[in-house]
Structure formats: structure tokens, C-alpha cells
């Protein structure tokens, strides 16, 4: 078990070092996420007031779209010098390599969400500080489920010619339950009369999805990566 976490940590640290040097994924993902939120704000905010209870959906749409972009760019980097193959060649637990890539993705997406959440709160007058722990739990659990599936598929598709098309086609249908739970849970604490108990229900459901998706991904990573 110690070896598993050591390898996962090595992969996360390497990914963070590479990203710190290039800022490629963070900058493109953040720019894309901000653009999505601003476009919705121009369309759905009239005289400073949003036309409906849309803030939760917009937060999750921006998270999902920018997350897909981050997944693609992160694995494109591994494809360019075929370094994913080098990782697969190492005598390390292959699920640990997956866990490291997943943790790296979660850190990147958390960074984007740190900017996205205040922006959505500001533009759509969403009460982001009313239930901060509920919101944090929803984002963490939802992002984990999304990234767990996305990391597996992005790694699988890294050598496929049509990977940019295939990734969203495979990813979105499977993560629809995560997105629905994330939106409904966030809406429960953003609505006029907040319902924290309902949000807790959605958090529990998201945690269930996380356990299922992460377990399946750890189990299938080695066979799917041995071409």
C-alpha cells in the first residue's frame, strides 16, 4: 500500500512540476471556463438580475466543459513524447499511476473551481457563502466522479486518432448522473429557500458514484492500458 501511494505521489508531483513550468492546462482551462460563465451571464442576466434559478447549472456546465478540455490537454502532453508508455513500462502498480493522474486532474480542476465559484456568485447572485461546506462537498464529490471516469477514458484514448471527438462522446453519457446530482444538490443550497438536507442527500449519492467509478477505474486501468 505504501508503494501505491509513493507512485501516485510521484506522478502527481511530476504533473504539477510540468504544469508549473508551462501553465498550459491551467491557463487554457481557466480561460475557457471564464468564457463559458461570461457568455451565460450576458445571455441570462437582465439589469443585474438572473432570469431564473440557473447559477447551479452554469457552475456545473463550466466545470464539465473545462474539465474535458483539461483532460484532453493533460493526456495530449503524455502522448507527444509517448511518456504514458514509459509510465506503463515502469515496475509500478498501474492503478497507482491512474490514481496519480486522477489526483493531478482533481488539483487542476479545484484550482479552476476556486475562480469559477466566486465568479458565478458575483454574476448570478448565487449565495455561495450560505452553506460553504455543503458547496465544497458537492464540488469535491462531483468533480471526483467526473474526473475518475474522464481520466480512465482519456488514458484509454491517448493513442486513438479520433480521441478529441471520442472523449466527450464516451464521457458525458456516463457522467450524466454525476452532473444531475451536482446540479440538483447545488440548486438546493442556491435556491430562494435553501434545503441543506436535500443537498446532503445529493452529496451522499455523489459519494456513492465516486466509490463505484473510482473502484471500476482502478480495476480496469491495467487491462485497458495493455493494448
Amino acid at each position: 500500500m505504501k508503494g501505491f501511494f509513493r507512485v501516485a505521489w510521484l506522478v502527481v508531483r511530476k504533473d504539477m512540476m510540468v504544469e508549473a513550468r508551462s501553465l498550459e492546462v491551467v491557463s487554457t482551462t481557466l480561460f475557457f471556463a471564464l468564457t463559458v460563465v461570461l457568455v451565460f451571464a450576458f445571455g441570462l442576466v437582465r439589469e443585474g438580475t438572473p432570469v431564473g434559478d440557473v447559477s447551479a447549472a452554469i457552475l456545473w456546465i463550466a466545470t464539465a466543459f473545462s474539465g474535458t478540455l483539461a483532460l484532453g490537454r493533460t493526456f495530449e502532453r503524455e502522448r507527444q513524447a509517448d511518456t504514458l508508455r514509459a509510465l506503463m513500462l515502469a515496475p509500478a502498480d498501474r492503478p497507482a499511476i491512474y490514481a496519480g493522474k486522477l489526483a493531478g486532474m482533481l488539483l487542476l480542476m479545484a484550482l479552476v473551481e476556486l475562480v469559477l465559484v466566486p465568479l458565478v456568485g458575483l454574476l448570478f447572485q448565487a449565495p455561495i457563502v450560505a452553506y460553504p461546506w455543503h458547496l465544497a462537498a458537492l464540488l469535491l464529490a462531483g468533480t471526483t466522479g467526473f474526473a475518475a471516469v474522464g481520466t480512465l477514458f482519456a488514458a484509454m484514448l491517448v493513442r486513438a486518432r479520433s480521441r478529441d471527438v471520442m472523449l466527450p462522446i464516451l464521457l458525458y453519457p456516463i457522467t450524466v448522473p454525476v452532473m444531475i446530482a451536482g446540479v440538483r444538490g447545488t440548486a438546493a443550497i442556491f435556491q430562494g429557500t435553501p434545503d441543506p438536507d436535500l443537498a446532503r442527500f445529493w452529496i451522499a449519492l455523489l459519494l456513492f458514484f465516486d466509490v463505484v467509478f473510482v473502484t471500476l477505474a482502478l480495476w480496469t486501468f491495467e487491462p485497458v492500458m495493455t493494448e
Binding site: K14, V18, R21, S22, A81, D82, R85, A86, L89, P91
Partner: peptide, 16 residues
Amino acid sequence: ARIGMLGHDLFLYPEL
């Protein structure tokens, strides 16, 4: 652990 491989692509991270 007993196999070393040098691919056509060089298996190196250019940023590091």
C-alpha cells in the same frame, strides 16, 4: 523492472 526501452518518441518530459 528488468526491461529497458527506448522508443521512437523519446519518453522524456520536455518541460523538465
